[in-house]
Simulated scan of single mutants.
Amino acid sequence: MDNLVQTAESFQQIYQRACDRKGGATALEALLGQSATAADIAAIPDNLLLGELTKKVFQSGFVWRVVRQKWPGFCEVFFDFDIEKMLLMSDEMLEAKARDERIIRNAAKVFTIRHNAMMIDDIARKHGSFARFLADWPVSDITGLWAYLKKHGARLGGNTGPYALRAIGKDTFILSDDVEAYLRATNVFDGGVSSKRSLQQIQQQFNLWQQQSGRSMQQLSQIIALSVGENVVGMQR
C-alpha cells in the first residue's frame, strides 16, 4: 500500500491519488460502476433475487467463473428459483438435487436455497416483495442491511451479502482487501472488521465521504480501492 497519513482523509485527497495512479480523472471515471435506482430494484422479481443470493453463496470460497459456467444448470435444477417451489422442497429432494451433475455438488450450500427462500417469503409478506424491502433500505445504514441478511439468511455473512446486493444494483460499498486495509491504516476502525462497532464506524466514515462528494457508496469504495494497493497504471508485476 502507498504511504498514507494515519488519519481518515477527505474524499478529495483519496480521489486525487486515485487519479494520479490510474492516469487521470477520465481514466478513473471509466473504471467506476453505477448503482440501480430504487425503482429498478423494486421491480426485480423475487425469484431472480433468490437466484442472485444463491449464486453468491456458491461463489464464496470457490472459482466464480465455474459458477457462472454452470449457472444455466442451476436454473434448470431449481426451477428458476421459484420461491413457492423452493419452499415445498423436502430435505430428501434437496439432498437429491445436491447430487445433480448440472450444478456444483455442495449439499450444505444447496440447503441454503430453501432457507433463503423462507427469508424472502417472510419479508415479502410484510413488505409486498423482497425487492421492495431492499429498495427501501437506506444506504446510510447499508451495514444494517448486511447484518439483517446475515442474521435471517443462510451463508450471507462476510462479503457474500454485500456482493449479492452489488450484483442486483443496490448501492453498497464492499470491504475488499484493499478497502479494509486502507480503513485500518487510516484508523477508521481498529477492531475486527465484522464487529458491530467497527461496521458502525466504517458506515459513519462512508456517510461523511458521501456528504463530501455526492458519490454513491459503490463508487466511493471503488475509488478507495483504486487509490491504494498494487493497481497502478504501468506497474510491472
Score class of each variant (00 low, 15 high):
Lys170Val: 01
Lys170His: 11
Arg184Leu: 08
Gln201Lys: 14
Gln204Ser: 11
Ser176Pro: 15
Gly169Lys: 06
Lys170Gln: 04
Gln205Phe: 07
Tyr163Met: 09
Asn187Gln: 01
Ile202Val: 10
Lys170Ala: 03
Leu183Phe: 02
Asn207Trp: 00
Phe189Asn: 05
Val193Glu: 12
Gly191Asn: 10
Gln203Trp: 00
Ile168Gly: 14
Leu175Cys: 01
Leu183Gly: 00
Ile202Gln: 00
Phe189Pro: 09
Leu183Met: 13
Val188Gly: 09
Arg166Ala: 14
Gly169Glu: 12
Ser176Met: 11
Lys170Glu: 01
Ala164Thr: 01
Leu199Asn: 03
Gly191Glu: 08
Ala167Asn: 03
Arg166Cys: 01
Asn187Pro: 07
Phe206Met: 14
Phe206Leu: 02
Tyr163Gly: 03
Thr172Asn: 06
Arg184His: 13
Phe173Gly: 12
Tyr163Phe: 06
Arg197Leu: 14
Leu199His: 06
Arg197Tyr: 04
Ile202Gly: 00
Asn187Phe: 07
Ala167Phe: 02
Thr172Ile: 07
Thr186Val: 13
Ser195Trp: 03
Thr186Ile: 15
Val193Gln: 12
Val179Phe: 10
Ala185Leu: 05
Gln201Asp: 13
Gly192Ser: 11
Ser194Cys: 14
Ala181Val: 02
Ala185Met: 11
Gln201Met: 11
Gln203Val: 05
Gly192Ala: 06
Ile168Arg: 01
Gly191Ala: 12
Asn207Ser: 05
Ser195His: 10
Glu180Ser: 10
Gln205Ser: 15
Ser198Arg: 07
Phe206Asp: 06
Ser194Arg: 11
Val179Pro: 13
Ala181Tyr: 15
Ala164Leu: 02
Pro162Leu: 03
Lys170Tyr: 05
Pro162His: 08
